[in-house]
Amino acid sequence: MATQVFKVPDSIIKDMTYGFCPGCDHGVAIRLVAECLDELGLKENAITATSIGCSVCLYDYLDVDSVEAPHGRALAEATGIKRARPDKFVFTYQGDGDFASIGLGESTHAALRGENITAICINNTTYGMTGGQLGPTTLLGQVTTTSPTGRNVEYYGYPIRIAEHIALCEGTAYSARVSLDSVANIRKAKQAIKKAFEYQLKGLGFSFVEILSTCPTNWHMTPQKAHDRVRDDMMKVFVPGVYKDVLQKV
């Protein structure tokens, strides 16, 4: 008798199809979030705040209570939700532009206050929904629609290392960077998300996972080549790892 080892998570809305482009890792990331919600039994107690960008679509796919935030303000709304209802499981799902550019103030201060919430940030080094412009994590040399000859320091300055930045905040309980470039790393990514969720359940403070992800459409790459780029280019600058873990003294 065969045992089922994979299913569509219960926390995913029944019979939906993602609106993401073919090969986009948002789909994997949302599934991992859903699997963690399932495994920790959080679906019926969760409230999410989603911001602007492709990440906002979360509320069309995840079967949990959600409120939409203006661009960059998801962690302010999540703070409001958690302070009003501390017994609820509260998390945000944001892109890098949302989390680390327009919303960097909200992100940093939520971490500094040690808000007992979890933030998931998809880093695909570009503004995907608006057509692939330069964002806060665009790599040096990367060509985007607003860096047509590649990101140079003279005009654009440097990309931000988000997980390291959040790890520096005293209120952060957990900050990790993971990648979705391979199945092995996808499994590690899920463990990181689960740990971040568990840290909120333990009331340890702000927990954060940065997920290196693809945008094949705006990178003008096949999904396969896009994963090669994550591995060969992104992971050298944005090195996966655990940058803060209050329980492991990292």
């Binding site: 008798m1 065969a2 045992t3 089922q4 080892v5 994979f6 299913k7 569509v8 995913i12 199809t17 993602y18 993401f20 073919p22 090969g23 986009c24 890792d25 948002h26 789909g27 994997v28 599934r31 199945v183 996808i186 499994r187 999904p223």
Partner: peptide
């Protein structure tokens, strides 16, 4: 695990 679209909906082992 790789599929971004959950088009592979079930996996059975054994």
């Amino acid at each position: 695990t790789r599929c971004p679209d959950m088009a592979i909906t079930k996996v059975f082992r054994g």
